[in-house]
Amino acid sequence: MTLSILSAGPMLTIQDAGRFGLRHMGVSPAGPVDAAAMALANVLCGNDPGAAALEFSGPAGSFRADRPLRFAVTGSDCVIRIGDRLVLAGESHRLNPGEVLTVGAPREAVWAYLAFSGGITTPEVLGARATHLRSGLGGIGGRALRAADRLPLGEDLPDAPCLRPANALPGHHPLSDSGPIRLIAGPQDDYFSSEELARLTESEFTVTPQRDRMAMVLGGTTLSAARGHDIVSDGTVPGSVQVPGSGMPLVLLAESQTTGGYPKIGTIASVDLARLAQMPVGARFRFRLISRDEGEELLLARRARLRAVLADLVARPDSWMRSDYLLSCDLVGGFFDADEIMRPVMPRSGGGAA
């Protein structure tokens, strides 16, 4: 059971939840830039939220499967076609053997996700299937996917229904937030003067084109470290905000290095890191400082919101109008006996018009 890649965009990779517990050995987790969006794509297809799926920035490409399957695209609106037929992002659809699925570039975000029922089952490397491009780990040869690659798929339940969210989700994303990007000061905020720390929250930053899965460079405001821009290398995490000699902050993402020698003025709160990473080039935003405890509380609340959205998916109609979908709709309120609903009406005896 395989998925054939007929064409591939430049940033098409296999990602799962990521590999953890290896930072002390210099291995960062990789995994999705936007874990919530990938979780929604997987659950729409009946997979575990952390199953291996495809992440893309720019056009995803075109695909063909050798068995019937379900697929879903999340994280952004995209042009999605099965053959010549347009279908919607944010819900799952059926793809039959021989049909060609084509997925265009994200329209409202930078990173989007394409999941298939059964999940992608390439071999695990260091406990995960996630592709780490910088170190060449996971996926297929640790690289971006390309035409003629064939991806193994896991077992599927062929009669399982396609799903959609019970309520429309803005941007085909399970979570929607706005406002300043929340930031926790440190661990080297003491390298910066009080004036520079004030600029951190009083000034506006912009998203520059210098970005990939490892980091994104911010513009609009530069920062200067009074104690210098070099430190003895210490640990970094996704969300670390490093300030090099250029003064242009670097925000580390999923493929971040595990140590770094630039002072870290702050760390993006985990609740907001994906939101920042999804901002298009040229977007403007501000930071707001919060405490570590507040960041933890916000993250726990966000995880609860995500669980609620994933638990609230409902069956959507297929082109065949499957009985499991029809019976879930209560089409004629008060009647729940399918035989009673479908029983043909018998003509009245006696001949004349009814």
Rank of each mutant, 00 (worst) to 15 (best):
Q15E: 15
M11Q: 15
E255L: 09
I80F: 06
M279F: 01
D66V: 01
Q257R: 09
W320D: 08
L327K: 09
R23A: 15
R305W: 00
G83K: 09
P249E: 06
I140L: 15
R23G: 12
G352K: 15
L313F: 05
P347V: 11
A35F: 01
L54V: 02
D189I: 00
I82F: 04
W111A: 03
G245Y: 02
P97L: 07
G31R: 14
L12F: 13
D339S: 11
T13I: 15
G295D: 04
G239T: 03
A53N: 02
R302C: 06
I181G: 11
V103N: 02
A53T: 04
H132F: 06
A17K: 14
R227M: 10
G282P: 08
M25C: 14
T131C: 10
A308I: 02
A51H: 02
F20Q: 13
F63H: 04
D212S: 12
R316V: 00
G154D: 13
L300W: 05
P317C: 00
M1I: 13
M214G: 04
A304M: 05
L252G: 07
I290T: 03
L163K: 14
V232M: 05
A225L: 01
M279S: 06
L153N: 11
V345T: 14
D156K: 10
G219N: 11
T221G: 11
R303A: 13
G350M: 13
R94I: 12
A254C: 12
D159E: 15
D159F: 11
C45L: 07
L151H: 13
G334L: 04
R199Y: 06
C45P: 04
C162N: 12
L126Q: 12
M214Q: 10
V207Y: 01
M321L: 11
